[in-house]
Amino acid sequence: MNTSALVKEYFREDKLPHIWCPGCGHGIIMHAVVRAIDNLKLDPEKICIVSGIGCSSRASGYMNFNTLHTTHGRALAFATGVKMANPSLEVLVLTGDGDCSAIGGNHLIHTARRNIDITTIAFNNNIYGMTGGQYSPTTATGDFGTTAPYGNIDKTFDLCNLAKAAGATYVGRSTAYYAKQLTTLVENGIQNKGFSFIEAVSSCPTYYGRKNKKGDAVEMMKSLKDDYIDIKIAEKRPDLAQSKILMGEFYNKPDEEYTEKYQKIIDMLKKESYHA
């Protein structure tokens, strides 16, 4: 399906063009997510897209499914309620680096820990874009933000390591440049019956790029190409991996899913009351 057909099938065309700035990677990531949904031939009526607050979280409004644009950081908690109440729904959470690892950090680690069947795609642009360029938990140490005028002294989160350590059963990273790989990771994440976390590295030329002299949209897109190396290549050719950031599938160890475990309790109680 080409873009035009995808837009007609899965987007609210009357809401486009989207609000994101010229050259923002978010549109590419949203496109990749929808391609993954199309490739898997999922029933759109059974898909629920939940988002929080921030640039990334505006994605839900453009996508023609059951969509829920929640409060800042809380998308995963709302999504947990939706999924528990109706496990037949395919729940995807679209969030940002600030949304899921700062204000929503607690929800991220606990949703991962439960291994509930939710696929999270974190649009990581290393900055708070919606509010105008403040540093986030993924802003590199030393980089600038409007609230880090002398350089950021915070250490950064590695979102994938965080999700993996917390118990996610599928973890991967790709960038807006590697949109095809991103699509594959999202497909795999959706197919994993459990908590999947995909870090989609984006770019914010308007705030992060300008503040840190990282160039324009094109320059930043080149960085999303050149600064990253697939983990499989890096394992074979460590010499090529020097000073590069790893991407690809980091972790894929399916485990028993949360709502299924809960269903076992329901079934056990049903059996007990039947025999009683």
Binding site: T80, G81, A85, N106, H107, H110, Y262
Partner: peptide, 23 residues
């Protein structure tokens, strides 16, 4: 379904999410 959430904020959020799913 019962779920003990990670905090009160999440408890309220999940309650709303479940209601949207019809419960």
């Amino acid at each position: 379904h019962f779920i003990q959430m990670e905090d009160e904020i999440a408890g309220m959020a999940a309650t709303l999410g479940a209601s949207l799913a019809g419960k």
